[in-house]
Write a protein that binds this DNA or RNA. Structure first.
Lengths: 143, 143
DNA sequence: GCTTGCTCCTATAGTGACTGGAGGATGTAC
DNA sequence: GTACATCCTCCAGTCACTATAGGAGCAAGC
């Protein structure tokens, strides 16, 4: 096999861990590559690119199923990119929501630690705010 | 049974789903309550308060093990609240980091959807940015 | 040729924090 | 008395991996 890339090399090149690469193959996100005589996976440059695409998508918080759709789109360049646009926009909304939610948490946590007088638990704002939901304005959070 | 609260009532009162309440009992976060003759769990006001504490802590993103520590502290009001303070501060740092990370994602997603010309996938910024990691400045993310 | 040590293989189980379903018992309202 | 809501236990599933066990392949040095 002159120029097949071993899984370890692909892993380093793409930043995707070896078990994760095998996992992606298992769930059909990455095609099963040919094997050497010794039964080892041999990848090519296209596989590495696909993995980079996947990793980057995961970093952006897209779910595996969404990535499946995005990869399908990438494979058919003549199609409309409306689906990709929809997925990205939906993710953007999610991210904005999450930021807003986390900012609320941040404010409440700040109130907690600022209120801590470093004394006994008895008079601790941290414990007290956690115990009494009425003392805060925070209402919902999802991760 | 005059004043035991049924699991369904506690669930509604605290906003914690019934299977989740049973799960918390199973992992030892909530003490196993007494049962009626018909083998049904009966809770009291203190249990409901404990569940509210847990729910609020989860909403703030604390992990179960941290909540265990926080509950232990609550049970011993004469102790120093330094541990609670440490946990809350650590969570605050996490939240701040996450906000920063999500803002980077937000920027990149915005660049993606703004660059989308609503044409073919061929020329779609969304797909292109995902494929080519060099086209973005984003580097790490954890959820 | 042989050993050392790295890389790779499969298969299975574990993670966190739940959630869902099956199949059955109990409690309540009409 | 019967319909229906609520509850019970146990077990499997979720997501996206991660870890472990137990072995085989391969490249380099002696």
């Amino acid at each position: 096999m002159s120029h097949g890339i071993a899984i370890g090399k692909v892993s380093v090149a793409t930043g995707v861990k070896i078990p994760t690469i095998r996992y992606y193959e298992q769930i059909g996100l990455l095609p099963a590559p040919p094997r050497t005589e010794g039964n080892r996976r041999t990848y090519d440059r296209k596989d590495a690119e696909r993995l980079t695409f996947i990793r980057h998508s995961r970093e952006l918080g897209f779910e595996i199923d969404q990535i499946r759709t995005l990869l399908d789109l990438q494979d058919r360049p003549d199609q409309s990119c409306a689906d990709a646009d929809t997925i990205a926009r939906a993710r953007l909304v999610e991210v904005k929501d999450k930021i807003a939610s986390l900012k609320a948490l941040e404010a409440e946590l700040e109130r907690m630690v600022e209120g801590c007088s470093h004394g006994r638990v008895e008079s601790c704002q941290v414990i007290e705010i956690l115990a009494d939901h009425g003392k805060c304005k925070h209402h919902q959070h999802d991760a």
